[in-house]
Design a protein around this nucleic acid. Structure first.
Lengths: 214, 214, 214, 214
DNA sequence: AATGAATGAGAGTTCATTCAT
DNA sequence: AATGAATGAACTCTCATTCAT
């Protein structure tokens, strides 16, 4: 019985988060009112405050919830069991698909962090994503499939790139050029990991020379 | 005298934009009040409305102003006259330096677009940046220094990556790890353009050596 | 309990209308602030907006409320059961008495209509008054006590006259000459319906007699 | 030259009044800004304040200006030289025509008086109208064409009626039913002065005869 | 636990008025 | 006399938060 209540609490909490996620994504943080979230979640305004202390906490939790979904998608064993060369494409296609399905949910990343506690939570949530990417990168390095490099930093920077491409694709361009943006993003990552570099052509060696000369 | 007035008007408008830029960057859009901007600009509240129709217009203009500064920095002839291999590093160092100087100004990119007019203005402003990068990329392709590719799309995606790295660096990490983030970002771009890809495991040692040598 | 709530809501709404009516009458529409109305009604500013969408709606409702009181007073069976010759006096005395009691409430008619919806509401409310007068006039015509004429138009024009006399009496003259204005207004209407016309100089004495007899 | 300046001043003052009259009539008092009036009058905002102390003074003067035009129209010798029986129709037709030409200028009477000084000025202005009517009524009484009555009070009440009919006609009904409202208003006044009263039911035919005989 | 009516601080915005030029 | 940029008080309206039920 306690468990049932527990579940009831959790489902109501989750309903609020999902309603919030949806409305925040559509309207942005400031334009969303608690009344709207409550109505969409099928509860009263006061009830929202039983589960969250204030509006920002709802936002933070919703944002983290969405980030966790991304991280979970990236940890999909079906992706990680692929040959290394196919993983970048699989990961990027996965996040594009996720955003495509939850079309305007990208804007959920747009609110700036205000308290250090929030920062901590956001870091943890983003860490789940970059951690997933990092885990993959590290494993490939360890197995000798990739040369050693700062995997965590690369994971962060590359996820930043993908994230920014997703934002451009689904927020700025509103879904137009999805194919082109996705494919070019994949191309960049694949080229970075598996080459050849753009400069290659026939003169790849000589470029090397020039760089060495610097 | 007309010129003085003209200058006076422009300086007052500029003072408001600069005050706004500063406070928006510090506090975020919603947390910033017109009264604060007016006070910081040394004018009365009503005066702000002589130069801007509403709060969002101030934000948009301030944001564009900042974007233009970035674009201008990237168009610096001293960068473009460098050997191709040195340009990515020069560009990335430039924007990192600009953000370092205007520390918390990165967050100015964070507000989502609300009207199609705003979208148009933001596109133009961002287009100035990606256009600068694109111009460089195209010229290198045309001169045969780089193999052909979708330069505009690459410019957008890569600027997205750098921008997201800047945000991570100056907003999330508040300046910590600046060196590491900057260097890894440069490394990724250089590797992409001038290789070798990370996967070329057998040459691992030499790459390391080269990097250490730089 | 539902009834209590219902009553509570209605009483609060009514309290706001009454407070508004009072302050609008004293100060005029534009000079009245929501804060004043809220204070006078004993509620918070926000509460006012729970019952009305905006300031004009408060005004419109208050204005209609007052018009309805007038209409109700004119429909008093005690008036309508009087002999026809006594009805005009009774009606005019009634509205003068009502305005006397709610001294400065006349000015509530002074704001011009702005939306077609408002126009519709005002027409309905004023229609309640002129309708009451018209109903009386029509019944007298139907019973042959008055010759046929455009009863609705007469009702409107004559109510306009009385209303304007009330405004002159209670707004412009601030209650002075109440007796004289009222009596002359009654005299005009009685003369119009039951004559003789002013021009019939020879019957002057008999008119006096008839009036004295009432 | 001083005279020229004097004329210049007067013409500029008059230009402001006329611009104000027009815009007040169209938009109402509060919705009209000094900037609009200045623009319409072809002067700078500051200039308006050279001729009027504040916004209400402009309104008051404009309102008085319009009232004076009405009064002047009613004092037209062509009206006063008519046979007594034709004067009411002539006067009412005159004011309807004036309002028809300056269609929405009726609403200029709608703002309530706020200071006793304003009250005084409005009384004087309205006195010019009712005085004109009163003068006519008195002269007819003195010449024995009408029986004695409180001419001033009648003038006020009847002008109130006509004014209210004008408001109904041009503000509420926006010009519809102009003919019907005007004719019924005339009929009421003619009946009042020259009879017979409506109550003379069985004698309807003879009423017509009497009216034709006037 | 759940409700939703009530709150009231605080925001953006307007515009009559001023005054240095 | 004429200007119009600058002012800032004051307004309406919103909505996160509370709390009696």
């Amino acid at each position: 019985m306690a468990e049932v209540t527990q579940e009831g609490i959790q489902s109501k909490r989750q309903a609020i988060i999902e309603a919030a996620l949806d409305i925040f994504a559509k309207q942005g943080y400031e334009e969303t009112t608690i009344a709207q979230i409550a109505a969409a979640a099928g509860v009263a305004v006061g009830t929202v405050y039983l589960y969250f202390h204030n509006k920002r906490e709802i936002y933070t939790q919703a944002s983290i919830d969405w980030t966790k979904r991304m991280a979970a998608a990236l940890r999909d064993p079906r992706i990680l069991s692929l040959p290394v060369q196919q993983v970048p494409r699989a990961m990027i296609e996965t996040v594009f698909r996720l955003c495509h399905q939850n079309s305007n949910m990208m804007s959920i990343f747009q609110v700036d962090i205000q308290s250090s506690e929030e920062l901590q939570q956001h870091r943890e949530a983003e860490g789940a994503i970059t951690g997933a990417v990092d885990a993959f990168l590290r494993s490939t390095v360890e197995s000798g499939q990739l040369a050693p490099f700062d995997t965590m930093m690369y994971a962060k920077i590359l996820f930043g790139m993908v994230h920014s491409a997703l934002f451009e694709c689904f927020c700025v361009q509103e879904g137009r050029f999805e194919e082109a943006i996705q494919e070019n993003t994949i191309e960049i990552v694949e080229r970075l990991f598996f080459g050849p570099p753009i400069a290659s052509g026939q003169r790849k060696a000589s470029i090397r020379d020039e760089r060495d000369a610097l």
